[in-house]
C-alpha cells in the first residue's frame, strides 16, 4: 500500500499541492481525477519522487521515500513502473530495446531469458512480433502507449503509475488501453495509480477514485459512487456536460 500523508508542493509562490492525505490500495486501479491544473501530475510525480515535496511523507509498504538510503531508493525504483502521458519512449532505441533497457540495467537474466521476457510483455500488450524491431516513430499513438506499458511492467513492478495514459487517443483505443491497465493490475496484483480526466476511464476501471481540486483531495470513493453521490464537488466535476446530467437524472429515476 502507498500511504501519502499531508504532502505539499509549491513552485515559487504557486501552491500546487496543499496537504493531501490518501491511501492507495494494492491490487486496485487508484484513479486520480480532477480538472486540468488541479495538481494531478505534480501529485503523481511527487509520489514518485520526481518532485521533492515541501512537507509530508510518501510511504511505500512502510518505507518512507525521503528517508531511504541510495541502495534502498534504487531497490524501490525497481519496484516502480511508469507510463508517461506522451509515452516517453527512447527515440534512438527500437521497441525491443526500449522494453529491454530496464532488464539490461537491473536484471541478471541471460540474454535468452531477457528476450523471452521482452516478448512476453510486448505480446501481453498485444504488440505483434514483427513490430519489435521498429522505431517508436514508426508506431501509432495507441501502439506507443502499449509499448510504454510493456516497458513499465517488464521488471514486474509492485507499483504502476500512469499519467493520463489515454490522452490524445480515440475513444476506442482509449478504452483498450484502460482495460489493458485494469487487466494487468489484477493479473499481477500491482498497486496502480492513474491520472485521468476522462470519465470513461473512471467508470470503466476506477476501483478507487480520488478527486483533486486546487491541490486538495475533496472526495474519494468507488466508481459506482461517482454517479450516485450527492457530494457537491463530485457533482460539479462529473456532471458538467448535459450528457452526464441526463445520465444522472435517469439513474435517479431508476
Amino acid at each position: 500500500m502507498i500511504r501519502v500523508k499531508g504532502i505539499t508542493k509549491s513552485f515559487g509562490k504557486e501552491h500546487v499541492l496543499r496537504g493531501i492525505d490518501v491511501e492507495l490500495y494494492p491490487g486496485k486501479c487508484n484513479l486520480i481525477i480532477g480538472l486540468s491544473g488541479s495538481g494531478k501530475t505534480v501529485f503523481l510525480k511527487s509520489i514518485l519522487g520526481l518532485h521533492t515535496v515541501d512537507s509530508g511523507t510518501v510511504e511505500y509498504d512502510g518505507r518512507i521515500l525521503g528517508d531511504l538510503n541510495k541502495n534502498e531508493t534504487k531497490k524501490l525504483r525497481q519496484e516502480m513502473g511508469m507510463v508517461f502521458q506522451g509515452s516517453a519512449l527512447f527515440n534512438s532505441l527500437s521497441i525491443e530495446e526500449n522494453v529491454g533497457l530496464p532488464l539490461n540495467f537491473f536484471s541478471s537474466m541471460t540474454l535468452e531469458k531477457k528476450l523471452d521476457r521482452i516478448k512476453f510483455c510486448l505480446n501481453r500488450v498485444r504488440i505483434p512480433d514483427d513490430a519489435f524491431v521498429k522505431m517508436p516513430s514508426e508506431l501509432s499513438g495507441g501502439m506507443q502507449k502499449r509499448v510504454a506499458i510493456a516497458r513499465a511492467i517488464v521488471l514486474n513492478p509492485k507499483y504502476l503509475f500512469c499519467d493520463e495514459p489515454n490522452s490524445g487517443l480515440d475513444p476506442e483505443t482509449a478504452i483498450v488501453i484502460d482495460k489493458l491497465i485494469h487487466e494487468i493490475t489484477h493479473e499481477f496484483g500491482m498497486t496502480t495509480i492513474l491520472n485521468t480526466h476522462d470519465m470513461n476511464s473512471v467508470l470503466e476501471i476506477g476501483d478507487h477514485v480520488i478527486l483533486l481540486q486546487d491541490g486538495k483531495k475533496t472526495w474519494e470513493g468507488k466508481k459506482e459512487d461517482v454517479l450516485t453521490t450527492d457530494e457537491k464537488n463530485v457533482v460539479d466535476y462529473v456532471f458538467r456536460s448535459n450528457l452526464f446530467k441526463q445520465m444522472r437524472a435517469a439513474l435517479a429515476k431508476s
Binding site: K45, L48, L50, T73, K74, R77, Q78, M80, G81, M82, F84, Q85, G86, A88, L89, F90, N91, L101, P102, F105, F106, F161
Partner: peptide, 17 residues
Amino acid sequence: GTMRVTEQMDALRVMGI
C-alpha cells in the same frame, strides 16, 4: 532538450538510472 521535454529523462529517473 527533446528528451527532457518529452519526459524521457524522467522515465530514466523512475527506472533508477
